[in-house]
Nucleic acid binder design. Structure first.
Length: 454
RNA sequence: GCCCCGUUCGUCUAGCGGCCUAGGACGCUGGCUUCUCAUGCCAGUAGCACGGGUUCAAAUCCCGUACGGGGUACCA
């Protein structure tokens, strides 16, 4: 049996990390088994779907390196779903219902559900354009519907807890459950891999599948949710989680993808950071955890730093240059080796190089005092100034001039000079970048700092 | 309320009855390397939610409790 899996986003928002993880696990399973990975846009909610978001979702998947083999859009297939529903209607598996939502709520009480009011009322098929009539699927009153979930084991629902749910809106547009069941059947989906928030839709889809004549439903694997620090499902509103946000902040797709894999799954040999090919070799749906996982950006940052340091110089320069701001490319290339081992995200770059390509930042008061409030600092700066006037303008000579001054005076000289020239007490190695600056600029910065000491 | 589910270091995970005085990773702490910071390397820190069973033996199996989560739409 050839594996066929699908990632089925609704285009109602940007692709967020939870959905990305679902897509990733589907993709991994397809690639692992030599199966087919399908992208199916579930845009049956015509009010909420935003066509322009489809492109964003596709781009985010591409960014993550998740390539798909087939693509469908449910809005292209409404006719087929409706034809299937006609079959249900003819066979008495579904019926028209003209109850308003407020009527239903009044009868059923505050809690949700439907009381089957129209089951046998023989509500007529509405004439075109008439509002207020939906199609409901007739669910069994007894028995249980269950399945063996690849992640969670046996899950069962009492059919009595399932109300006759709506499958076609009064607008005539089919709803999620039918579209989902029809497509999984029609497309020969063998495994449904998605978030745990969808478990309770399975019995409905299973019933629909049966009504459709499917003899063998797909296997289901429900992934544990990715949660925020409050242990709640990641939400687009509360949490800053769209994949695009991460590309903007300078994360590498490989790092993001690798980190996402560790949420709910772990390789048996304890190696977390590894090439995607090795992950594909080892991945299996049966090994996925049941418990929710917290999306820890600190660990993501660590992964990203590791991936940044794995890059060769050319790749690093090409990838990070757009984040570096207004810099000459050749100059940036010379600084890049020092930058590369110091950052975990590309958006940290500007702060590291601003003293070289522009002006140093205004020093932090505490840092300034910590470095400069020493009796020997004025003497040190004076001597450094004197030696720098005459020094050959290249890194080794600059180091000798500055560090030598310290030795002569028996004082620390690197930190005060760093503070004077870069405006900070930490950062890139001092002398190589300093040699990129003009002598007059460096001398002026040191004199200015020296002036503040009197 | 009703339905479904989860629980191994602060966090992510390995573990699927003996190899576990529970392993790895992030974080944190300390050390070495070093022009600062960072990288790299080394060391340390901290956990099987609780209570009953089953078994010669339980983190691993069963039951209960507690806590947590998901769902409960003419969203998906």
């Amino acid at each position: 049996m050839t594996v066929r899996v699908r990632f089925s986003p609704a285009p109602t928002g940007y692709l967020h990390v939870g959905s990305a993880r679902s897509a990733l696990f589907n993709w991994l399973y397809a690639r692992r088994t030599g199966g087919t990975f399908i992208l199916r846009i579930e845009d049956t909610d015509t009010d909420r779907s935003r066509p322009e978001l489809i492109d964003n979702i596709r781009r985010s998947l591409e960014w993550l390196g998740l390539d798909w083999d087939e693509e469908y859009r449910q809005s292209d297939r409404f006719d087929q779903y409706l034809a299937a529903v006609d079959g249900f209607l003819e066979r008495g598996q579904a019926y028209y219902c003209d109850c308003s939502q407020t009527d239903v709520r009044a009868r059923v009480g505050g809690s949700a559900g439907y009381d089957g009011h129209c089951r046998d009322r023989q509500v007529a098929k509405p004439a075109d354009g008439s509002a207020g009539v939906v199609v409901r699927f007739r669910t069994p009153d007894e028995g249980v519907t269950g399945w063996d979930d690849l992640v969670r084991g046996r899950v069962e629902f009492e059919n009595s807890t399932l109300e006759d749910f709506v499958i076609v809106r009064s607008s005539g547009v089919p709803m999620f459950h039918v579209a989902n069941a029809y497509d999984d059947f029609d497309m020969g989906i063998t495994h449904v891999v998605r978030g745990e928030d969808l478990v309770n839709t399975v019995p409905r889809v299973l019933l629909l599948l049966e009504a459709l004549g499917a003899t063998e439903p797909p296997r289901y694997a429900h992934l544990p949710l990715i949660v925020n620090e409050q242990r709640k499902k990641l939400s687009k509103r509360r949490d800053d989680v769209s994949v695009g946000d991460y590309t903007d902040r300078g994360y590498l797709p490989e790092a993001m993808r690798n980190y996402l894999v560790t949420l709910g799954w772990g390789a048996k040999d304890d190696i977390e950071i590894r090439p995607i090919s090795e992950i594909i070799e080892r991945f299996d749906l049966a090994d996925i955890n049941k418990a929710p996982a917290y999306f820890d950006t600190r660990k993501l940052d660590h992964f990203n730093g590791e991936y940044i340091r794995m890059l060769d110089l050319d790749s690093f320069v090409t990838a990070s240059l757009p984040f570096a701001g207004d810099v000459d490319e050749e100059l940036y290339r010379r600084l890049a080796p020092f930058v590369q081992e110091r950052i975990r995200r590309y958006d940290e770059i500007p702060a590291l190089i601003e003293w070289i390509v522009a002006e140093p930042p205004e020093p932090d008061d505490k840092d300034w005092r910590k470095v400069m409030d020493r009796d020997d600092v004025p003497k040190v700066l004076d001597l450094v100034l004197e030696r720098l006037e005459a020094a050959e303008w290249e890194p080794d000579a600059l180091a000798e001039a500055v560090l030598g001054a310290g030795e002569v005076l028996g004082a620390k000289s690197q930190l005060p000079v760093r503070m004077a020239v870069t405006g900070r007490r930490s950062g890139l190695p001092l002398f190589e970048p300093m040699a990129e600056l003009d002598r007059v600029v460096v001398l002026e910065r040191i004199r200015k700092a020296r002036g503040r000491l009197d």
